[in-house]
């Protein structure tokens, strides 16, 4: 902890944010590797924690209540249908790692489904994937 505090003292805010981003990317890549091939990773708990049916999906009122960064990502995913984090990042002009973080957040909220085909990880609005 002391070392971290010393490091933080010497690091600029930009460097700290960069370091956080690198750690997030690393965590994200590890999570991606944990997603079994062809099997979707999707929790069936809504924002309110209520038990839903086989999927929660994403309705427009929920979309309106999302924080701006997640709403933008979800809106793009709606338009693209199925997409990788890179596809979404191209549309939003944000870093792939940042979009990957947002998409994974939406997966944890139950609005987005994540699955792997080959080496690529795909995202889609829950209920869009035929196997859902």
């Amino acid at each position: 902890m002391t070392i971290m505090r010393n490091d933080q003292d010497q690091m600029s805010e930009k460097e700290i944010l960069q370091r956080i981003l690198e750690i997030l990317v690393s965590i994200d890549q590890k999570i991606d590797r944990l997603v079994p091939k062809g099997i979707s990773l999707n929790r069936t708990t809504s924002l309110e924690g209520e038990k839903e049916g086989p999927y929660t999906g994403l309705d427009v009122m929920t979309l309106l209540s999302l924080p701006e960064h997640l709403r933008t990502t979800a809106t793009i995913l709606f338009e693209l249908g199925t997409a990788t984090a890179e596809d979404v990042s191209r549309a939003t002009l944000k870093e792939r790692a940042v979009e990957s973080g947002y998409l994974n957040q939406l997966v944890r909220m139950g609005h987005v489904t994540k699955y792997r085909t080959g080496r690529k990880v795909y995202f889609c609005i829950s209920g869009n994937k035929k196997t859902d």
Binding site: G53, D59, F78
Partner: peptide, 13 residues
């Protein structure tokens, strides 16, 4: 319900 409306949105797209 919301689930139907979510599907309706996808169908509209």
């Amino acid at each position: 319900d919301r689930k139907w409306q979510a599907k309706a949105l996808k169908l509209l797209l």
